[in-house]
Design a protein around this nucleic acid. Structure first.
Lengths: 241, 241
DNA sequence: ACGCGCTCGTGAACGCATTCACAAAGTCGA
DNA sequence: TCGACTTTGTGAATGCGTTCACGAGCGCGT
């Protein structure tokens, strides 16, 4: 059991925490493929946009255009949720929103704890996209006592030592790390220790988590470097003659 | 036709075919696979860490551990850059850093223009990970004249109308969008119009770019929703008994 | 000098994701 | 009611990426 490996799209670790190389034959019983799951939020956003525009039904072709993907992909992705389309017509927008939200677990509210209130932490705390999808920040923590007490986005910054209290008191299961890289692993360990089972890491470092804990990362400078690669390549073969 | 726009989600691209959608038999002349390119910055960071720790050589196994990936993957990825390892020993850290930097185009400096100085824009402007990899912010723009003149991270915020001047004056080829979603497409169009050929989008919306322009996106709320999915799944089958 | 052990580099196998292509299933108008 | 049209849902084909497995090359100790 516990072959729930950490799903991490961009790399970095999974359930390798303890050191066992790879005793996991990737069972994937009845799950929706990761690639599809990763697109569901995209469809959801597109659907919200369409709903605001007054659309009540949408074809896979139209949804694909709005989401910037291929229509066959849309149909296959949605088929994993069940058959909620009507042939000859398309999908009912509201119904689809409901089913996707359901599949993503967005029908319930999630409490999140955010660690690190530097530049990025500030921005994340104030980011509207979290609250609008049912994610509520239950606590804003920082190791620097100088910042404790500060008010950000309607919340008071508390000290890292209050972590356990915040997590257990609010049923927090998701943690966001926005600390400097050197502090990230320790923060991660403490989050896991407090009972957090999903972590979103913004610190530019590779984190190790035990099996059963999901880890995703967002790395701003990596994205720029990837763009740099393509840009570099473009200019290199810019004048082939 | 031509819904074959630049891929957005995790892949980059689109820059290849200059129009014809299906006639492109995936040429990929001498290119490094996208999946490998996406990991190079990760290796680079790990190597920097190892170098600071005093290591002068590193095996694929050790680098893999540091980067949180599989060692076969490391070897295959690096083999795309050429054969820079020594059998029986491993890779020389400095040399590898040099080759990867080279492949990513990080040996030259890139000028970046950042549009939108809200919460996120602020954080990005102050983010150290950019400058440390050779990315220099050539301009900080915003459409709100109330913010123009503000000083952020040593730079003065200028008005969006100065875009052309900033781009052409500094040879900017990369643009970062940190505006609200509704403004993003227009900003994107203006960036492209000014000559920017690579765009990193933080706004939660799907952008359309012409062929030849690379587009990547970072979506904070999407990441949380994906975590939500896994969390939801965990609690659903938490007690199988 | 020479073999032994280590590690790279890479062909081959495998699995997942995307795309194609079409039958099934529904709507709509006459 | 019926037939033409639209769009879904999905097997099949294709392509890409990961992993395996091992031969080739290199350093080192004897």
């Amino acid at each position: 059991m516990s072959e729930q490996r950490a799903a991490q799209v961009d790399g970095a670790v999974g359930a390798v925490g303890a050191g066992t190389p790879a005793t996991d034959p990737a069972p994937r019983r009845r799950g929706i493929p990761d690639a599809s799951v990763a697109r569901l939020p995209l469809y959801l956003r597109s659907l919200h946009g369409l709903a605001e525009g007054g659309r009540t039904t949408v074809s896979s072709e139209a949804l694909a255009a709005a989401a910037g993907v291929n229509s066959a992909k849309v149909r296959k992705d949605l088929s994993h949720l069940g058959s909620y389309g009507t042939r000859g017509v398309g999908y009912e927008v509201d119904e689809l929103v409901h089913h996707i939200s359901n599949a993503l677990g967005l029908t319930q509210h999630w409490s999140v704890v955010l660690v690190g209130v530097g530049n990025l932490g500030h921005a994340l705390a104030g980011y509207g996209g979290f609250a609008s999808r049912g994610f509520q920040i239950a606590g804003l923590l920082d190791a620097d006592r100088g910042r404790v007490g500060e008010q950000i986005a309607g919340l008071m910054v508390r000290h890292m030592d209050d972590l356990d209290e915040v997590v257990r008191g609010n049923g927090v299961s998701i943690g966001v790390i926005a600390t400097p890289a050197r502090a990230a692993q320790e923060v991660c360990d403490r989050l896991v220790g407090a009972g957090v089972t999903s972590i979103l890491n913004f610190a530019p470092t590779v984190l190790q988590v035990p099996p059963g804990v999901d880890l995703r990362k967002v790395d701003l400078s990596m994205e720029l470097q990837i763009l740099s690669f393509h840009e570099h390549r473009k200019s290199a073969k810019g004048v082939p003659a």
